[in-house]
């Protein structure tokens, strides 16, 4: 008798979900954030539809403040014949010069990420957006559905969610409405790393420790990825051996000092560490339940 491991079961469940989206929605898209969760999601999508191509495009919402290494990693996908990659930038935001320093992280994230995402969904008339969110990331996500219904205004109503029984997903929507689909809902951060290790999945090198120029602000180590980072008087970038546990806009993403330069070392470090993944992300700290509010507004 073959015994399936927990990763086998998680993988099979995610593939099942991806196939359900492809089969039951008119115009789905996969959100591609370039992070490790996106790498896993992309790997699962390849598996779900092998030997065929992935039957929906990938969409990267580019805030123009991503790490350069992320963009290089993303652009390498353009050569893959099985992948259709779309990149969307909120041009209005660019024209107004919106950025994390000039406008603050909250405004920047809202305009260049949340609003930009809504723009793209509206522009391409996607009726399903597949995302890599996990339920273990944050408390309000623990109650998120796998097929999460959104109104025509892209809003999420936590009190009005469709019950999900067995593996039967209700994908029926009216014109203008959409669903967000989270195939790796039941994975934890540790599952993700173990799967990357098991399947030998390619990830952005920023996850591995290396000498990088950083400055420390409000207890967060920020990498000086380009010359747009305004240095305070007397502030001088220092070379430190750091890595990133999550990836986003470089000025908003904290580095951690680390020696972990391989997947196994990352997992080892993770098992020893006692700080949760989102700690490095500035976005959650604004107010209690801030993630829940952002989700209601249309953030993933």
């Amino acid at each position: 008798m073959t015994t399936l491991t927990h990763l086998d079961r998680l993988e099979a469940e995610s593939i099942h979900i991806l196939r359900e989206v492809a089969a039951s929605m008119q115009n789905p898209v996969m959100m591609y954030s370039i992070g490790k969760d996106s790498s896993v999601l992309l790997h699962l999508a390849r598996k779900a539809f092998h030997p065929g191509p992935i039957p929906f495009p990938l969409l990267h919402v580019d805030t123009t403040w991503k790490f350069r290494e992320m963009i290089a990693f993303r652009d390498a996908l353009k050569d893959d014949p099985n992948i259709d990659l779309l990149v969307h930038i909120n041009e209005e935001g660019v024209e107004q010069g919106v950025g994390p320093f000039s406008h603050g992280s909250a405004v920047h994230t809202d305009i260049m990420k949340t609003q930009s995402l809504k723009q793209a969904l509206t522009k391409y008339k996607f009726d399903a957006a597949i995302g890599g969110a996990r339920r273990d990331e944050e408390k309000s996500r623990a109650k998120e559905r796998i097929f999460s219904f959104r109104s025509a205004q892209h809003r999420w109503d936590p009190k009005n969610q469709r019950p999900e029984l067995w593996s039967l997903y209700n994908a029926r929507i009216k014109p203008g409405e959409s669903v967000r689909v989270f195939p790796i809902s039941n994975w934890t951060e540790l599952d993700i790393w173990q799967y990357i290790y098991q399947e030998n999945i390619d990830i952005v090198p920023l996850y591995f420790a290396d000498e990088r120029p950083v400055v420390e602000r409000d207890g967060i180590m920020v990498m000086v990825d380009d010359d747009r980072l305004p240095l305070e008087p007397g502030e001088k970038p220092e070379m430190k051996k750091v890595r990133f546990r999550t990836l986003g806009c470089y000025p908003l993403t904290g580095a951690v000092e680390s020696e972990a330069s391989s997947i196994t070392e990352i997992i080892e470090e993770m098992l020893r560490t006692t700080t949760s993944e989102r700690e490095g992300r500035a976005i959650d700290k604004d107010a209690p339940a801030s993630m829940e509010m952002k989700k209601q507004e249309g953030y993933f």
Binding site: D136, K139, S140, A142, K143, P158, K159, S185, P288, E292
Partner: peptide, 23 residues
Amino acid sequence: LVDGLAAEREQGITIDVAYRFFS
């Protein structure tokens, strides 16, 4: 730790299904 949504925290009740993970 497990009463997720803001409304629930205030009312002190669990009003939905939440999924937790440990190993």
